[in-house]
Nucleic acid binder design. Structure first.
Lengths: 157, 157
DNA sequence: ACATCTTATGCAATCTTGTTGCGTTTGTTC
DNA sequence: GAACAAACGCAACAAGATTGCATAAGATGT
């Protein structure tokens, strides 16, 4: 975990970050790991993989801890867990408006995922008898800005 | 091996199966593995995991071969590869009408996937500038018939 | 500020899914 | 039936994610 001079942790007046606020609101412990990971997610404008998150976190944070924090964030419905075409989880902060209907774009070249906010999803596919719908997810497949022009980047993770 | 009497190849008396036909039409080799796997997929009314397919195939067929056959079927666009919420690929036969717009239902309890045919997908979410759409996938999340009623089954695979 | 209790963390080991390399077998063609 | 390429089986490997357990750190009461 991070160096954490006394000032950096408690007396910093500027911002009890939005992340910290959100975590505290759950009633669970406000830990460094949770704050750091959540701040990374909030700063990113797109879905991040576990790797990207681990790399973006400022201090060293154990791989497993990142997994556990992400799992916790997902259970708290603060984050959203997206299965990708490369078999890798990606995570985004889950805005409240996105609770039920949610659209993603996934690049077929680099597998990046971004969230699409303005979804015209008044869409209700009919399910077989006995099935219960809990929401609809729309995923647009295609090429992202970076991959559409030149030779594809092939980032993958 | 010459034109093979029915019994000499398999116990299935159902003549030259639709599966065999389909494979032959691609111009590639018509092998036991391909026939068996494709028949399993055609018989199933839903998306199957690698495990399910391997278990359903009558004779012993190597794990890796099943993977390779599935990969080949996907490349031939005979099968369709679906990423699930449990990090496991699922495969279905790809009907021709499903080519571009295709909806799935995925159970949040047991992760089973079924195909929904009648999708009213006249839906075109707006993408950021520079992005290129190649198709839209709609996934309905919820509980399947088996999981909606009693205590959820939690099958997972 | 300190003791205490609980929960989260770090580390190592493990599991699961899927892939690769390579020698052998099997379809297909002639 | 021979010859050749394409599939197959086996073993090893790889990557992502999970689990068990001892230790550290947040929260709470005094």
């Amino acid at each position: 975990m991070r160096a954490a001079t006394p000032e950096s942790r408690r007396s910093s007046p500027a911002a009890v970050s939005a992340a910290e606020e959100l975590i505290r609101a759950t009633g669970a412990r406000v830990t460094q790991g949770r704050i750091l990971v959540l701040e990374v997610l909030q700063a990113a404008g797109r879905a991040l993989t576990h790797h990207e998150i681990e790399a973006a976190v400022t201090g060293p944070l154990d791989r497993v801890t990142v997994y556990r924090v992400l799992d916790w964030l997902t259970r708290q419905q603060i984050a959203h867990k997206i299965p990708g075409d490369d078999r890798v989880w990606r995570f985004t902060i889950a805005g409240q408006k996105q609770a039920h209907h949610h659209a993603h774009f996934q690049c077929t070249d680099c597998s990046q995922v971004i969230c699409l906010d303005d979804v015209p999803t008044t869409l209700r596919p009919r399910l077989p008898a006995g099935y219960r719908s809990a929401g609809v997810e729309v995923t647009v497949k295609g090429q992202c800005k970076a991959c559409v022009r030149p030779a594809p980047r092939r980032v993958r993770r």
